[in-house]
Amino acid sequence: MCGRYATTRSSGTLSQLFEAYDDTDGRLRPDWNVAPTKPVPMVRVDGEGARAVSLARWGLLPPWATSPSAGARMINARVETVATSRAYAAPFARRRCLVPADGWYEWTRTDGGKQPYYLTRADGGVLALAGIWSVWRGPDGPWLTCSVLTTAAVGVLTGVHDRMPVLLPPQRWGRWLAPTADPTALLGADEEWLAGLEIRPVGPEVGNVRNGGPELTDRVPGVPAPRPRPPVAEAADEMTLF
């Protein structure tokens, strides 16, 4: 699952990295503790076929949703059911996006409670989470909303959680965004890309959404590395917070 993450690059930097124009109107702010329903950057293809860095509310709202509160339960979409889900199938087929992240957080149970980890590129590179987006028309106008796709964790990541966001290496970005591409062919794990991830123990402060500074990603010394474990299937289609 992916219930909290960090995204701190400016819209200008993201525009350069993803070869897209800036559609954020200067509203993007760095956030080291993104939580559901917050505004987040995404890279999408606009109606003219150009790449855009846009702001979207995290938590996809299908057109028939009667309240924006429904989005808090739809921050993640499972790859196993995204193509057939009533809420996700249409965006998966036609409105795919990249959700830029510095890293994401997961919690593991310990004898003393829960230990949070920050999963990030060891080289500091950007992560592109596979996402889908939609437009919800509320009383104050249209909103862009998005969800992050999740899949079964692999390798060392199974020691942190049995789910993980779908991570797309740069060579898959263009095909993922292309409306005519087969998205199911792009969802497999790239072992070389995953090998560059760092699993960093961090402090409990990240569990409070009111905390949002860069210190949340600081390493906590003395915490052992998590041990890999066999993945366990989750029952729910929509992910919720820890």
Results as ranks from 00 to 15, higher is better:
Met1Tyr: 07
Gly3Val: 06
Tyr5Met: 11
Tyr5Lys: 09
Arg9His: 12
Thr13Met: 08
Leu14Lys: 09
Gln16Leu: 04
Phe18Cys: 14
Glu19Arg: 13
Glu19His: 15
Tyr21Gln: 13
Asp22Lys: 15
Asp22Ile: 11
Thr37Val: 13
Pro39Glu: 14
Val40Asn: 07
Met42Val: 09
Val43Pro: 02
Arg44Trp: 05
Gly47Ile: 00
Gly47Ala: 06
Glu48Ala: 03
Glu48Ser: 02
Ala50Gln: 01
Arg51Cys: 04
Leu55Asp: 11
Arg57His: 02
Trp58Asp: 03
Leu60Glu: 00
Leu61Ala: 03
Pro62Gln: 11
Pro63Glu: 10
Trp64Glu: 01
Thr66Gln: 09
Arg73Asn: 11
Arg73Met: 13
Ile75Gly: 06
Ala83Leu: 04
Thr84Arg: 02
Thr84Gly: 04
Arg86Asp: 03
Pro91Tyr: 00
Phe92Lys: 08
Arg94Trp: 03
Asp102His: 12
Asp102Ile: 10
Gly103Ile: 03
Trp104Thr: 09
Tyr105Ile: 03
Thr108Ser: 13
Arg109Trp: 09
Gly113Gln: 01
Tyr118Ala: 06
Ala122Phe: 03
Leu129Arg: 00
Trp133Thr: 02
Val135Phe: 02
Trp136Ser: 14
Arg137Met: 06
Gly138Gln: 06
Gly138Ala: 03
Pro139Lys: 05
Asp140Gly: 03
Asp140Thr: 07
Gly141Glu: 10
Leu149Ala: 07
Thr150Phe: 05
Thr150Cys: 00
Val156Cys: 14
Leu157Trp: 15
His161Ala: 07
Met164Asn: 00
Pro165Ala: 08
Pro165Gln: 07
Leu168Thr: 05
Gln171Glu: 11
Arg172Ala: 10
Pro179Asn: 03
Pro179Lys: 04
Asp182Phe: 13
Asp182Arg: 15
Leu186His: 10
Leu187Glu: 10
Trp193Asn: 11
Gly196Thr: 15
Leu197Val: 10
Asn208Gly: 06
Val209Gly: 11
Val209Ser: 06
Arg210Cys: 04
Gly213Pro: 05
Glu215Asp: 15
Leu216Cys: 15
Pro221Tyr: 14
Pro224Trp: 04
Arg227Gln: 15
Pro230Met: 04
Glu238Phe: 01
Thr240Gly: 05
Leu241His: 06
Phe242Thr: 01
